[in-house]
Amino acid sequence: METIDQPETYKEDWFVDLWIIDEDVQSGVVKEGVYLRKWSIHFDNYTLHIEAETNHTSDHQGHYGSDFRFYGMIVFEVVKDARQVFLDEELDKFVADATNYKNYITNTLKGLEVEICID
């Protein structure tokens, strides 16, 4: 985050994902409910993709409910030394929500997965 405005410092591709999962809903043992709360930051092809989303069995293709939702993309064009920014909300709101991920943990939505890949 400290070098977000310096794409020349980025590795070729990288990502960080934080997921909170209800394994019973995800596997179908329980038929209804929130099964995934996720925060993702992916960088590839000089584009930073940022997402926070809640998924539910009845609407698993997109955001569900009243939880914080964030979609953003920052395109760093190295040739033109310009960037294009597309954000639903201020980036600070995404960081604050992801930092407070424990607020989304419940008795059933409690499986925590973190995946980090830096090439």
Rank of each mutant, 00 (worst) to 15 (best):
E32P: 05
G33K: 04
Y35W: 13
L36K: 15
L36T: 05
R37G: 03
R37F: 04
K38Y: 01
S40V: 08
I41Q: 12
I41C: 12
F43L: 09
F43W: 12
D44I: 06
N45W: 03
Y46H: 09
Y46E: 10
T47C: 07
T47I: 14
L48D: 08
L48G: 06
H49K: 11
I50G: 07
I50Q: 03
I50L: 05
A52Q: 09
A52T: 05
E53K: 14
E53S: 15
N55E: 12
D59R: 13
D59E: 07
G62C: 11
G62M: 08
H63E: 12
Y64M: 03
Y64E: 06
S66V: 14
D67L: 02
D67P: 04
R69F: 12
R69Q: 14
F70A: 00
F70H: 08
F70S: 04
Y71I: 06
M73P: 02
I74N: 03
V75N: 11
F76W: 14
F76V: 02
E77H: 10
E77S: 13
V78I: 08
V78Y: 04
V78F: 07
V79R: 10
K80S: 15
K80L: 10
D81Y: 07
D81C: 10
A82D: 11
A82I: 11
R83F: 01
R83Q: 15
R83L: 09
R83K: 15
R83P: 03
R83W: 04
Q84V: 10
F86E: 14
F86P: 01
L87P: 05
L87D: 02
D88V: 03
E89K: 15
E89I: 05
E90I: 05
D92E: 11
D92W: 02
K93H: 07
K93V: 04
K93C: 02
F94G: 00
V95M: 08
V95Y: 11
A96H: 01
A96N: 03
D97R: 07
D97L: 05
A98H: 00
A98M: 10
T99Q: 09
Y101F: 15
Y101K: 09
K102E: 09
K102A: 08
I105N: 06
I105S: 04
N107H: 12
K110F: 05
K110C: 12
K110I: 02
